[in-house]
Write a protein that binds this DNA or RNA. Sequence first.
DNA 1: TATTTAATTCCATATATCATGAAATATGGA
DNA 2: TCCATATTTCATGATATATGGAATTAAATA
Lengths: 110, 110
Amino acid sequence: MELNKAVAAFAALSQPTRIDIFRLLIKSGPEGMAAGSIAAVLDVKQNTLSANLSVLLHAGLVKNQRQGRSIRYYADMDGLRNILSFLMQDCCGGQSAICQPLIDEIANAC
Amino acid sequence: MELNKAVAAFAALSQPTRIDIFRLLIKSGPEGMAAGSIAAVLDVKQNTLSANLSVLLHAGLVKNQRQGRSIRYYADMDGLRNILSFLMQDCCGGQSAICQPLIDEIANAC
DNA sequence: TATTTAATTCCATATATCATGAAATATGGA
DNA sequence: TCCATATTTCATGATATATGGAATTAAATA
């Protein structure tokens, strides 16, 4: 992963509504949530939510899929794994073998 | 941890130089690095580096300690653990007991 | 085809962030 | 005290981001 992608991912999470969205999607797991439901739960206007979902989408932190009229959004655990791995690369005094498996487990568990 | 702190932490990491700094400090482990050394390694102007270190400091991602003329900076693994925990709260379909220990291990291992 | 629901795009305004030069502060040594 | 080194603080112009209203696209259904 390059620096630019990591920047985009962290920038995506550097806004309260977007953190709320991402946490909500992590909580809702593989079922995900329709954009409209997210807007309702978080009490955010449709267009504002759409813009924020778009940021998370391009940052690789969420995925989406149209389902009839609605579009369902899901947390992208691979995206999360990527930024964590990037951040912790060469940690533990270069012995990143200690941390790396833990990061993988987190992404796989959810 | 409240939302505002998480926002500050992610905002701190949403800038290339600051990611570089944080990764450098993670890599350098408990020994940390003097501000001047960081500036030299990353080829960043002193005042620019100082401003960026300050952002990371207030975000709780790095710690510092004066040592003679220089000020040494260290990655704050507790800070990292906090934002990861916040993000993953209620993950795994509410069974966050699966992820939480992994997050703790990461922070402790380094 | 017309209507309703769902979500996005466009545009304008307000706000926040960035890197930098210049000046200030803190420490250690002569 | 005077000077050099290390780092921070301040002010600023340039750039980026957030938000909401209005218009638009897309899908389902009658």
